[in-house]
Amino acid sequence: RSVMTEEYKVPDGMVGFIIGRGGEQISRIQQESGCKIQIAPDSGGLPERSCMLTGTPESVQSAKRLLDQIVE
C-alpha cells in the first residue's frame, strides 16, 4: 500500500475549527480518515494555511472531504 504526502490549503481563519477544543476535531478527522494531518504553525500572513496530509491515496481523499465539510 503506497503512502503519499500531499499539501492541502485551508483558510487561515478556519484552523481553530479544524483543530477543535483540545485538538479533538483534528484527532477525529485523523481517526476517521486514517490520514495523518500536520497543520503549519502559522500562515506567514497569507489567507491560507498549509496542511500536510500523509497516508494512502484513499485516506488523503477522505481527509480532504472531512476538512472541506468543516470549512464550508
Rank of each mutant, 00 (worst) to 15 (best):
V3S: 06
F17M: 15
G45R: 07
Q61V: 11
G44V: 09
R49N: 06
E7A: 07
G55V: 00
R65M: 12
L46T: 13
R49D: 03
R21E: 02
G16H: 08
A40T: 12
P47V: 10
E32G: 03
S33G: 01
K64S: 04
T56L: 08
Q61W: 08
L66Q: 11
S59W: 01
R28Y: 04
P47R: 09
P47C: 08
L53G: 00
A63H: 00
L46W: 04
V3D: 10
S50M: 12
L67F: 04
G20M: 03
E48R: 08
K9V: 05
K36T: 08
A40R: 08
Q31G: 06
V71Q: 13
G20P: 02
V15R: 03
G34L: 04
C35D: 00
M14D: 07
V15H: 04
Q61M: 13
I18P: 02
G22E: 13
I26T: 06
G45T: 07
F17K: 15
Q25H: 12
E72F: 05
I29P: 00
E24T: 11
S43K: 06
R28A: 08
L66M: 13
K36I: 07
Q61S: 13
E48N: 12
S50K: 12
D42Y: 05
M14F: 12
K9P: 05
R21L: 15
E58L: 07
G44Y: 10
G44I: 08
V60P: 00
A40Q: 10
Q38Y: 04
I18K: 02
K9D: 03
G20K: 04
D42G: 09
S59L: 01
L46S: 13
E6W: 09
V15F: 14
I29N: 01
S43V: 08
Q38D: 10
I18S: 02
I39G: 01
G55K: 00
V60W: 00
G16Y: 05
Q61Y: 09
Q69T: 11
P57G: 12
S2Y: 06
F17A: 15
Y8Q: 03
L53T: 00
E32R: 08
E48F: 12
G23Y: 07
L53C: 02
G45Y: 06
Q69H: 10
D12Q: 11
E32M: 08
G45V: 05
C35R: 00
M4R: 03
S50N: 15
G44W: 04
C35T: 03
G23Q: 08
E6G: 06
V3Y: 14
I26A: 04
L67A: 01
C51W: 05
E48W: 14
P41G: 08
Q25K: 13
G45P: 07
M52S: 14
I37T: 01
E48Q: 06
P57S: 11
Q61P: 01
I18N: 02
S2H: 03
V10P: 02
K64Y: 02
P47L: 12
Q31I: 09
D68Y: 07
D42N: 11
T5C: 07
A40M: 11
I29T: 03
I70V: 14
I26S: 02
V60L: 13
A40V: 06
I29D: 00
K36Y: 04
K64E: 03
D68E: 12
Q61I: 11
Q38E: 15
I29K: 00
E72L: 12
I37P: 01
P41A: 10
Q38N: 05
L53M: 06
D68G: 14
S62F: 07
S27C: 10
P11G: 04
G45H: 03
Q31F: 06
M14P: 02
V15K: 05
E72H: 13
V15A: 07
R49W: 02
R1T: 14
E48P: 06
E48T: 11
G55Y: 00
E6K: 13
T56P: 10
R49H: 05
E6Q: 15
P47F: 07
T5W: 04
S43T: 10
P41E: 14
G16R: 13
Y8L: 08
C51M: 15
E48I: 09
S59Y: 01
G23N: 09
I70S: 10
P11Y: 04
M14A: 13
E58W: 04
V60E: 00
T54W: 03
D12P: 13
S59T: 08
I29C: 03
S27N: 10
P47K: 14
G16F: 03
V60M: 06
K64H: 04
S2P: 08
A63F: 00
I39E: 02
I18M: 09
R1A: 04
S59Q: 12
S33R: 01
S27L: 09
V3E: 14
S43M: 06
G16A: 12
I39M: 11
G23V: 03
S33M: 01
S2I: 07
E7D: 02
V10I: 15
S27I: 09
Q69G: 14
A63N: 00
I29H: 01
P57C: 05
G45M: 06
G55N: 00
A63M: 02
I26K: 06
F17G: 15
G55I: 00
K9T: 06
V3C: 09
I19Q: 11
